Amino acid sequence: MRILKYFFLLLFLFLIGLSVFILTQKGDYDVTRSKVIKNPRVIVFNYINDYRNWETFCTWIKNDNTYNFNYPELTMGKGASCSWVSSGTEGNLKTILVKENESISQKMVNNQETSEFFWKFKDTVGGTKVTWRSKGKLDIKSKVAAFFHGGINSVMGDTFEKSLENLNKTLDYEINTYSVKVNGIVNRPGGFYLKQFLHCKQKDVERNIKVLVSRMEHFFDKNKMSSNGKPFIIYHKYDRTNDDIGFSVCMPVRDSIHIMPGSDIESGKSVSYTTLKTTLVGDYSHTQTAWKKALRYISDNHLERNNSGQIVEVYAVGRKDVKNPSKWVTEIYIPVFPKAAPKAVNRKPLDSLVVATPPTESATPSKNN
């Protein structure tokens, strides 16, 4: 009996000593992990810079299906943010500073606990070296939890390492897996739409389109408006020589809508016209490949471009529909003149007649397409 009392006394003293030891440890932490991602720096930077992509690689999100994210109008670049709630956490992320293709600084609040994220991107052999650093201070509860799991450096470091590995796998497959198919001549119907116009350099087109599409979708949600289809782009000017691209991000509507003067959103209307349709299945970064195949098809089949028509890209399946870039669908419509019907020629009857149609150019899903 006396031995049992001594045992509990020693256990009690041990627990008190352990608690004092844990509580007197510094709560400040500074954790850094790096990994070479097998993709060009601009692709890796743009992917991490957009909060809508974090669900595809962050370990703590992928392992907890109770996360529910809220994305505002701006999700990439300086001032971008997102917020979430789950079964055990509630928080938000905000981008404080961005240096294009070089670094990103962010602030995270998770269950009222504040920390900072710092990202650095550097070209290296085999791809891009990504360095992810986090600084912050633990509260008492987090101190205790971290202690029994090997310390905050081990816990957070392991999470960063797994997330960076997920990022590498995601980009390796999701970005590089795509297919392009030239569908042929189709008639694109006309209709009403709302648009927002922008001029920019070619290197900024993809990023600006993402921003403006998100802004247009937010405009419709905020004003409780219904679209009459998927968002699309009208290219008004594509001057490679002077690096000047002019385009409108559009959302189709059923009827004409009057917009108050002074708004950067305008109304528009298109008419029906003949086009060559090409479909890209995969990330938007492969649109140039799709364009080249479409233009080559026009040349090989002796079609004539109709320069008075509108060159359009329709985002039939986008990131609002599915998270995986490899499953996005972009339809490209290039205006052409319909071929003249051949004149009828009287011929002698034939027992059989075989007509060979020209093959459509296509690409099967491949990383080397």
Rank of each mutant, 00 (worst) to 15 (best):
A341F: 14
I104T: 06
V36D: 08
N306W: 03
S103Q: 10
D243R: 08
R188Y: 03
N168V: 03
H236C: 00
N46D: 14
G262H: 09
G246D: 13
K137S: 08
K5L: 14
I16W: 08
G282I: 08
Y284F: 15
N166D: 09
N168Y: 06
G91D: 09
G184Y: 12
I140D: 11
G190A: 06
M251F: 13
I3K: 12
T357M: 07
Y315K: 06
F121M: 04
K135C: 10
D221P: 00
V354Y: 09
S326A: 15
D28L: 01
V317G: 02
K224R: 11
L280K: 06
K201M: 10
I332Q: 03
P189F: 02
P252A: 04
N153Y: 09
P349W: 03
T289Q: 05
L280D: 07
T131Q: 06
T114M: 05
W132K: 09
F14G: 14
K162H: 12
T59Q: 13
V31T: 07
G318T: 09
A363F: 05
I257K: 11
I22V: 13
W119C: 05
L303T: 10
I43S: 08
Y193N: 12
V354K: 14
K320C: 00
S34T: 13
F121L: 03
K367P: 02
Y284V: 05
V317S: 08
L13I: 15
W60V: 01
I3P: 00
I22A: 07
F220G: 06
L198Y: 08
R319F: 11
A146L: 01
V155N: 03
A316G: 00
W60Y: 11
I233W: 01
L167G: 12
E331M: 04
F121A: 02
V329D: 04
G17T: 11
K137C: 02
F14A: 15
D264T: 14
K367G: 15
F7I: 15
T357G: 02
V44H: 03
V98K: 04
K195L: 14
R207Q: 14
W119T: 04
I257H: 01
V249N: 00
S272N: 12
H149S: 15
I265Q: 11
I334A: 03
T75W: 02
K120G: 07
K38M: 05
L23D: 01
N166S: 06
R296L: 08
A145Q: 08
K224Q: 13
K99T: 12
P338R: 11
G309S: 11
G246V: 07
F118T: 05
F7N: 03
K224I: 08
M108C: 05
N228C: 05
R133C: 07
G309Q: 05
K343S: 12
E174L: 09
R215F: 09
F337M: 13
S86H: 10
